[in-house]
């Protein structure tokens, strides 16, 4: 059986096509990711973009729409996707996906372009509690991205640069709009760019950490979402949470879509 999970993120759309494999004698069903696909919606509206991303993913996997038993969708724009079988929250999807990659996970930290949240997960991979700040850009990836652009760096370079800094410059503003002016004045004061990069990533990490603290920090911790690609951010988050280790899955941005596909498969039984 094939199922699909779609994550309608604020920045990009992620599609995961999952195949269920029956192994003789194995107590549990096994799954294999057939295809993980990511697309930027560009000018398209949510439903059209989802349609396009889904079709492209199917094509890349050599599948047809009728091969797919169920399509589950998550993310901020999920209600606009008309062809989906069912919608699930980002917390549920992220928790299930993280649990699949790392069964020992108890805390999922999800940092995407416009949202950041901490989710407490039980042994079965169910989200039991969460804290997020969905209506505020502080503590989300787009803030780091905007700041990296101000320094004419990619988000990746920005993260790497921050690792070269050992300075701690505290940022006072809680709001992204106000923090932007703080960064501008740092640039004007000829502060080295690696120190600014560290200050920004520390600020994002401290805000994320504060959210996670509300649900309680329990190991193992898994970081998902696009910001997991930034080595500098992972390092800053480790220090903020005061933990030795943060588990990073492969393709961190697609974990919620994977969680969706898993939930779709499990609910067919």
């Amino acid at each position: 059986m094939i199922t699909a999970g779609i994550d309608m993120g604020s920045r990009s759309i992620k599609v995961v096509l999952l195949e269920e494999i029956k192994v003789e004698g194995a107590p549990q069903l096994q799954y294999a990711v057939k295809k993980a696909y990511m697309m930027l919606p560009g000018e398209l509206d949510a439903d059209e973009a989802a349609e396009k991303a889904y079709n492209e993913a199917l094509q890349a996997a050599g599948l047809k729409r009728e091969d797919v038993a169920a399509v589950y969708v998550t993310g901020a724009g999920r209600s606009q996707v008309k062809f989906a079988t069912e919608g699930v929250t980002e917390m549920t999807a992220g928790a299930r996906g993280a649990n699949y990659m790392f069964p020992e996970v108890r805390t999922v930290v999800d940092v995407g372009a416009e949202e950041g949240r901490g989710v407490k997960v039980d042994a079965a991979g169910k989200a039991v509690d969460f804290a997020g700040n969905e209506k505020c850009a502080a503590g989300a990836g787009s803030f780091a991205e905007a700041m990296s652009r101000a320094l004419q760096m990619t988000l990746k370079e920005f993260g790497e640069a921050s690792l070269r800094s050992d300075k701690t410059i505290p940022m006072n503003a809680q709001c992204t709009v106000f923090a932007e002016s703080e960064v501008v004045s740092l640039i004007h004061a000829s502060t080295p760019s690696q120190d600014i990069a560290k200050a920004v990533l520390d600020a994002v990490a401290s805000r994320i950490c504060a959210m996670v603290r509300r649900v309680g920090i329990e190991e193992s911790i898994v970081l998902i979402g696009g910001m997991a690609h930034s080595a500098g951010f992972v390092d800053a988050l480790k220090k903020a949470l005061d933990v030795e280790k943060i588990l990073l899955p492969e393709m961190p941005e697609s974990i919620s879509a994977l969680g969706c596909a898993l939930l779709a498969a499990e609910r067919q039984h």
């Binding site: 509690d129 804290a131 504060a210 959210m211 509300r214 649900v215």
Partner: peptide
């Protein structure tokens, strides 16, 4: 004053 939700979380967990 700008981070009370988090600063008070030790005395006031979301549970």
């Amino acid at each position: 004053t700008r981070s009370l939700a988090f600063d008070c979380s030790e005395c006031k967990p979301s549970g």
